[in-house]
Every structure is written in C-alpha cells, then in structure tokens.
C-alpha cells in the first residue's frame, strides 16, 4: 500500500502540491487525473524519490521513503519519455537494469509480447520512439514488482502494442499488483481504472470510482465529466475575482 500524508511541494514560488493525502489500496488500478500543472507528475516523482517534498510523509509498503532507496525495488516505473544511452544495445540496457536491481527478472515473455526480438542487438540510437517506449515497458514490467507506476504509458505506441499493453495491465491487476497511472487518454481510464483521483490546483478534488464521478457530474462520458468540473471551477474563480473587496 502507498500512504501519502500532507504532501507539500513548491518549485520556486509555484506551490504545486498543497497538502495531498492519498491512500492507495492493496491492489487495483488507480488513475491520477488532472489538468496540466495540477501536480500529477510531482506526486509520482515524489513517490519515486526523484522529487524531494517540502513537507508531508510518504510510505511505500509500510516503509518511509525519506532517506531510503532500497524500497524502490518494489516499484516498476515507466517514465513519459524513453531515452537511453545511445550506444548501448537493447539487450545491454536490459542487462544493465537487471544488474542494478540485482533481482530475478523475467523479460523473455515481454520481449515476445512486444515483438522486440529483432531489435535486441541494435543500438538505441537507431530505434524509433515507439520502439524505445517498448524497451521502457519491458524494463518496467520485467521485475515482479508489487507497485507499478505508469506515466503516460501510451505515448508513441502503435495500436497493436497498445492492445498488448492493456492486456498486460489487466493481467497484472489480476496478479494483485498496485498500479498507479497517469494519462490523458480517458478511454484508457474508463477501460481500466478501479479508482480515479482527480487533482486540481495541488489538491485532491475528487476521489472515487468511475460511477461516483458519473453520479457527481451527471455525465456518462469521463471526458465530459472532467470538462464540466474544470469549467465550473473557472467560473467560481471569476466570481471570486468580481466580488467587491
């Protein structure tokens, strides 16, 4: 389980997270949504220890992460942009990450699933963006990590790979993994997410299942629900500004 309490983070003057409390369940898929700059990536990076919070506490699997780095062997992470040392081959990069984690990995099924076999010995500088993203997927899923964090997992993937990925995510859910997901593709959320967390201006605005959200906004489509929330929010802003001092 991932336990976040009162998480705060500012970049310069920009207060990105204003006291976020978040509890992620023991299993299932949790989608973190929100407009640009709402703090999705910051939360994810905080969990991974890439961003050092100004305040609050994060626990992963019962371990506080502050000053700790070993907890990360429970996490598989898929970053947004896939870039690797250009002169290494795919096989070498896989070997490198295995070396670093020093734990058993099962990359063969993933390589086959995403059709990576022909690329294993080519240098990463020669690969297309989509293929590199597949390398990323292999690296993320090849360990039997309890927590899987996916930051925009669909970027650059072709439809076939996308289907494979969805299957993979579902399988992992069945295996009892905890999956955190950010994405702009709402279809993906509707299809996969057990729980939705909607961030707005550094706080959790909404938290619940897809049905909860439909109920709240009265819209069936998730995309519309979100658009409605955002519009309402900006109207409130205007009202606040027009109030006499």
């Amino acid at each position: 389980m991932i336990e976040i309490t009162k998480l705060e983070k500012a970049f310069g003057k920009n207060q990105v997270l204003k006291g976020v409390d978040l509890h992620v369940k023991e299993s299932g898929i949790c989608a973190i949504l929100g407009p640009n700059g709402s703090g999705k990536t910051t939360i994810i990076k905080s969990i991974l220890g890439m961003v050092i919070p100004d305040g609050g506490n994060i626990e992963v699997g019962g371990e506080k992460i502050k000053g700790n780095w070993l907890y990360r062997n429970q996490i598989g992470y898929l970053p947004q942009i896939a870039r690797f040392p250009e002169n290494l081959t795919v096989a070498e990069v896989i070997k490198m990450v295995k070396d670093i984690r020093n734990e058993p990995a099962d990359e063969q099924p993933l390589i086959e699933r995403f059709g990576m076999k022909p690329f294993l010995n080519s240098r990463l500088s020669n690969l297309s963006g989509g293929t590199r993203q597949k390398v990323n997927l292999v690296l993320c899923f090849m360990f039997n990590a309890k927590y899987i964090i996916l930051d925009e997992p669909t970027a650059g993937l072709d439809p076939i790979a996308l289907i494979s990925l969805k299957e993979l995510i579902n399988e992992e859910r069945i295996n009892g993994k905890v999956i955190l997901l950010t994405t702009h593709i709402m279809d993906l959320v509707e299809e996969l997410a057990d729980e939705i967390i909607f961030l707005l201006e550094g706080k959790i605005f909404f938290r619940g299942t897809l049905e909860d959200m439909q109920e709240m906004t009265g819209e069936v489509k998730l995309e519309r629900s979100i658009a409605k929330i955002l519009m309402k929010n900006s109207e409130e802003h205007k009202e606040m500004e027009s109030l006499p001092n």
């Binding site: 991974l48 890439m50 907890y71 992470y77 896939a82 690797f84 670093i100």
Partner: peptide, 17 residues
Amino acid sequence: YNSREFIELLLAQPIRR
C-alpha cells in the same frame, strides 16, 4: 542534458542518487 531522462529512469531504481 542528453542523459537526463535516462537518469530519471535510473532514479526509479533501487540505487543511491
């Protein structure tokens, strides 16, 4: 600068910064 993204990938691994 070129390996910034790769550094991020590494940062997510159980290894010291």
